[in-house]
């Protein structure tokens, strides 16, 4: 009996420590002209009307965040850019358990010829790992408050990188930032005043830091433990993220 109780206590404790963040997203309250298709291991968000691009966006959610939490952001991006977005549902909401599952999800969309991968937090780190493994498959990567794991270098990768940070605080750790810069292609910082892309058409990075956001603002959830206090609204934050994502696609001719 004692053994039984120990097992039960261990199971309960482990499970409770692994709670995912709920999303505030509701499929009934989408304000964008998009179609959302729910599948067991992915969520497909595509424009309901107009022409859809042959470039697609594959998205890896952050660790222990409900995979629907990014639907608002991606619905806005999908409508504005005319891009099909595929959110990869991760086992237990942890991308480390299915790092390369994105490839299988891409194969389910033969209408898409070129794939850009994006990831938030842990999802971004795992996206970098799969890009490192399938470097010819992906043409670009978007990091959201994220960077490659130390063992993964995209320095010489032929693709293009957009890195978005949610607040000044996120880039204030100089050592971490230098490490990140050493793992991605040569970087140019973009600001509202200075927003010119490099002349290269491949092997470059552009980085932008949003003023006053917070880590959980990339999704519709939170606040997350350790979040900085935001000074802008989530809607303003999403507008800026979508603006930079759309520009990144446009600059690379992925429309």
């Amino acid at each position: 009996m004692k053994r039984f109780l120990i097992i039960i206590i261990l199971l309960t404790t482990t499970s409770i420590l692994s709670c995912s963040y709920q999303t505030t997203f509701s499929s009934d309250n989408i304000n964008y002209d998009v179609t959302i298709t729910e599948k067991r291991n992915s969520i497909i968000i595509e424009p309901s009307s107009g022409e859809t691009s042959t470039t697609g966006l594959l998205f890896y959610p952050g660790g222990l965040v409900d995979n629907h939490a990014y639907n608002d952001l991606l619905a806005q991006f999908s409508e504005e850019a005319g891009i099909k977005c595929v959110v990869v549902k991760m086992p237990a909401n942890l991308a480390v358990f299915a790092i390369n599952s994105g490839i299988k999800r891409c194969e389910e969309h033969p209408d898409i010829e070129k794939w850009i991968i994006a990831g938030h937090s842990l999802g971004g780190a795992m996206a970098a790992s799969t890009v490192n493994k399938y470097s010819d498959f992906y043409s670009g990567i978007i990091f959201m408050d994220s960077y490659p794991a130390d063992s993964v270098s995209l320095k010489n990768w032929e693709g293009c990188v957009l890195s978005l940070f949610s607040s000044i605080e996120k880039i204030s750790d100089e050592e971490r930032m230098n490490k990140t810069l050493s793992l991605i292609p040569p970087a140019t910082w973009l600001t509202e005043d200075e927003r010119s892309y490099p002349e290269e058409s491949s092997n470059y990075s552009v980085i932008h830091c949003i003023n006053g956001g917070s880590h959980s603002y990339f999704g519709s959830y939170g606040p997350q433990d350790g979040d900085f206090t935001p000074t802008i609204t989530r809607e303003e934050f999403h507008d800026e993220v979508v603006d930079y994502m759309t520009e990144f696609f446009s600059e690379n001719g992925w429309e």
């Binding site: 199971l11 309960t12 692994s18 995912s20 409900d66 991760m90 086992p91 237990a92 909401n93």
Partner: peptide, 14 residues
């Protein structure tokens, strides 16, 4: 009766 702790594509469950 007992306890089942697992995971799915929605996270961990009990």
């Amino acid at each position: 009766g007992g306890l089942e702790a697992g995971y799915s594509y929605l996270g961990f469950d009990i």
